[in-house]
C-alpha cells in the first residue's frame, strides 16, 4: 500500500499570496535546502528562492545559528562577486533567521545540458568542427578564473552549477550550436568560502575536472581548453595550474584527515 508523499511545507514567506502570478514551484532539493522558482515583488520578476528548512536532528539553537550563518555567507559571496563583475545571480531579498534567500532567476539551461546536446549521439572522436564547444570551455575557464580573482572559491564546481544564459537576439539557427552559446553564469554558492590560496583554488579546479570527466566522459579531452583559458585570467593562475598537478597526484584532501 502506498501513501502519497506529502509535499514539503513551504517557508512562511511563500505561504502568502502572489498576485495573479504563478504559485511557487519546487525546482530542486538537496541535503541542506530546497530551491523554488517564484517571484520577487511582482509577477513579472521571476526569482529563485533558496530555503534551508530547520533540521529536526539538530539542537534548535545550533540549527538556527548554522542556518543563519550559511544564508548570510552565501549572500555576502554573491554580493562580492557581483560587485567585482563576475556573472552570478543578484541577491533580491533574504531573511537569514527564517532561512531563505531570494535571487535573480537565471534563464537558460545548465552547462551540463548544453554540452550534452552538443555531443548528442555521436561517437567519441571528434568528427566535424569543435569550435563552438572549445569556445564554451574557454568561457567556463574565464568565469572560474575571474571568480577566483575575487578571492572566492566555489567549493562545488560542476557543469550543473554553471548556467548558460541565452544570447539576447541570437541569430544562430543550428540547434547544436545554439546549445553551447551564451554567457556562463556560476550559481549555487552554498559551499563557497573566501580564500586566495593556490591550494584551495587548485582543489576547486580539481573538483570541476573530476566532475566534468564523469559527467561528460566523451568530452574529457576538451578540459585542457578550460584550463588554458583559466591560466590567462590572472597572474596567479599559472601557479594554480602547477598546484593542480600536485593535487591530481594526491586527491582533494591535503591532510589525509576527515
Amino acid at each position: 500500500m502506498t501513501t502519497p508523499i506529502p509535499p514539503f511545507p513551504l517557508p512562511r514567506v511563500l505561504t502568502y499570496p502572489t498576485a495573479p502570478g504563478p504559485p511557487p514551484l519546487l525546482i530542486a532539493q538537496g541535503a541542506e535546502g530546497r530551491l523554488y522558482k517564484t517571484t520577487h515583488l511582482h509577477p513579472s520578476r521571476p526569482c529563485a528562492l533558496k530555503y534551508r528548512p530547520p533540521k529536526p536532528y539538530r539542537h534548535p539553537i545550533l540549527d538556527a545559528r548554522l542556518t543563519k550563518a550559511r544564508i548570510a555567507a552565501e549572500a555576502k559571496v554573491l554580493d562580492r562577486c557581483r560587485r567585482e563583475g563576475v556573472s552570478v545571480p543578484a541577491v533580491y531579498a533574504l531573511d537569514a533567521a527564517a532561512g531563505w534567500l531570494m535571487m535573480e532567476w537565471i534563464e537558460g539551461v545548465p552547462v551540463r545540458a548544453g554540452i550534452n546536446t552538443w555531443l548528442g549521439e555521436r561517437g567519441e572522436e571528434g568528427e566535424g568542427e569543435e569550435g563552438p564547444i572549445v569556445e564554451l570551455m574557454g568561457r567556463m575557464g574565464d568565469a572560474v578564473g575571474r571568480l577566483h580573482g575575487t578571492g572566492i572559491v566555489h567549493g562545488d564546481l560542476t557543469t550543473s552549477n554553471m548556467m548558460l544564459r541565452p544570447v539576447v537576439g541570437s541569430t544562430t539557427t543550428d540547434a547544436r550550436r545554439r546549445a553551447v552559446e551564451g554567457e556562463v553564469v556560476v550559481i549555487d554558492f552554498g559551499l563557497a568560502t573566501q580564500s586566495s590560496s593556490d591550494e584551495d583554488r587548485a582543489v576547486d579546479l580539481y573538483v570541476l575536472e573530476r566532475a566534468f570527466a564523469s559527467t561528460h566522459p566523451r568530452a574529457e579531452r576538451l578540459f585542457g581548453h578550460l584550463l588554458a583559458a583559466y591560466g590567462r585570467t590572472s597572474k596567479k593562475a599559472p601557479g594554480v595550474l602547477r598546484k593542480l598537478e600536485e593535487v591530481r597526484l594526491r586527491g582533494r584532501k591535503k591532510s589525509m584527515l576527515g
Binding site: A72, A75, K76, R83, A90, Y92, A93, A96, M102
Partner: peptide
C-alpha cells in the same frame, strides 16, 4: 541591482 543587494544584506 547593487542597491537592492546592499539593502538586502543589511545587518549580516
Amino acid at each position: 541591482a547593487l542597491v537592492v543587494m546592499k539593502m538586502a544584506l543589511r545587518g549580516l
